[in-house]
Structures are given as C-alpha cells and as structure tokens.
Amino acid sequence: MTIALPAVTPAKQPTSPLPRPTEDPRWLRGLLITLALAFMGLFLFVPLACVFYEALKKGWDVYFAAIVDPDAISALKLTLLAAGISLPLNLAFGLAAAWVVAKYDFRGKQILLTLIDLPFSVSPVIAGLIYVLIFGAQGWFGEWLRDHDIRVIFAVPGIVLATIFVTVPFIARELIPLMQAQGSEQEEAALLLGASGWQTFYRITLPRIRWALLYGLILSNARAMGEFGAVSVVSGHVRGQTNTLPLHIEIAYNEYQFAAAFAVATLLAALALVTLGLKVLVERQVKKTST
C-alpha cells in the first residue's frame, strides 16, 4: 500500500512582485520588439531572402550555368585582383596613419583625421569621376598616356584606383580608437629594454591590434569586392575585360537575364554574410583580449 503523497503544489509565489521602475510594461516591450522586427524584416531579411529565391527560381542548372559563365569567371578574377591590390596598400596606410594618430600628440591631428574619413563622405560616382578627370582622354595626363599607349580609364588600373579610394579609411578607422585606448607604455618599455623600432612594432604593437586589424581587412575586402558606383564610372564595361562582379550583375540584369544576375549576386550576398559572421567572431576576440 502506498501512501498518497500530499500534493506538493503550494500556492505559487508571484515571481515578480512589483515591476522594476526602469522596466517597461509588457505591452510596450511587445510592441517595440514587433515594430523593430517588422522594420528589419521588411528592409533587411526579405531582400536578402529574395536574392537567393530569385537565383534558384529557375533551378540549379541555370544557377550553376550563370556562375561558371566565362564572363562571370573573368569578372570574379578582376574583382579578386582589385581587392588583392587595394588591401595591402590600404593596410600599409592604415597602420601608418593609426601609428601617427594614436601614438603622438601633434599639430593638425584633427585635420588628418578628417582627411582619412573624406572618402566616406564622397559619393562613389565622384570617386570615379575624379580619376577620369586626371587619367581620362581629356584629363591632365590623358595625352601623355595616349602617347605612351597606357590605358588607365576603361581599364584595370582605373578600377584598382577607384577601389583603393573607396576603401582608404576602413583599416585606419578600426585601428585608431583601439591604439589610442591602449596607449604607448608597452612600446616605450620595449624600446627601453633595447628593442629596435621595427622589433617593437612587430613584437609588441602588432599582436595587440591583430584582431582589429583583421576586422578592418574584412570590412575593407567586403567594400572592395562590392564597390559599384566608383568602379562603374571608370570601367567602360567591356565584358570579359573590365567587368567586376557587381558590374557583371548590372549588365545581366539590364539584359533581363534575371536568374543569372541573381545567381552571381548570391556570391556577393554570401560574401556579405561571411563578413558579418567574421565580424561577430572578431568582436568577441577583441572583447576577450581587451579585458
């Protein structure tokens, strides 16, 4: 015989006796979360989903055919080339600029900071235009370039220049706040202990900024590979020669090859998602190393 246990369900204590004064009422929280999600859904998630849906609407065969299309492959190569040249140059600039701004106190620092940010506030179309004014047929060096049979505008060098322009600030922007916060005591100690300038940089500074540096490179790369306006002005749109991936998308789209345009667009959308994923990882590392 078993003894029936008394039901152990005492009257439940109210879990939250009183709302905290800085806590918003439930209905308000629900409303705001709904509004925020609806806004982001409408303007972010649905467009992103649409890229993949439109790309695969006509099936995988059409999708793969669009991606291995020779023009798409050559556009991909040019995109990689432009990013591959602009990244190391902007990396060198970003390190130099951040070193100067973060480690020294000098006259005109604010001006230098504004100049670094300048490419962010210039329309991409203008970024392309200024190179046309210098290297184009009617430009400053137009005649000289023609005489020496060098093409900059409507050719690869112009595309590389435009890509460099739009990505100049990224790495410097990421490094400056971090290096300012870190100060220079460790570098001074290394120098005092007899390290050379470069040794100090490689052994002390670089390891402490590596995550921010990586983040700057990731952002820079995403922008370099995706730049459209500036590159569009200087490219000339020669298929198989001066088309980058975004320009290839534009041409396919304007020729009503929607499935092909969206197929190539999924590559860039995937790159964007990878960029965001890496960003989260890097931010976590920065938080870990700085605390």
Binding site: M40, L44, F45, V46, P47, L48, C50, V51, E54, L219, A222, M225, G226, E227, F228, G229, L245, P246, L247, I249, E250, Y253, F258, A261, F262, A265, L268, A269, L271, A272, L273, T275, L276, G277, K279, V280
Partner: peptide
C-alpha cells in the same frame, strides 16, 4: 544584431536588384 550591418556588407548592386524585384 549581427544582421543590422548587412547594408554595409552587401554590395549596393545586389541590394538594388533585390529591392527592385521585391
């Protein structure tokens, strides 16, 4: 939170054709 930065990372041409299709 991570996806808020999507417009920074997504190339403008991709955004353009997606928004047009939508």
């Amino acid at each position: 939170d991570a996806l808020v930065d999507l417009p920074f990372a997504l190339p403008t041409a991709v955004a353009g054709i997606a928004l047009t299709a939508l």
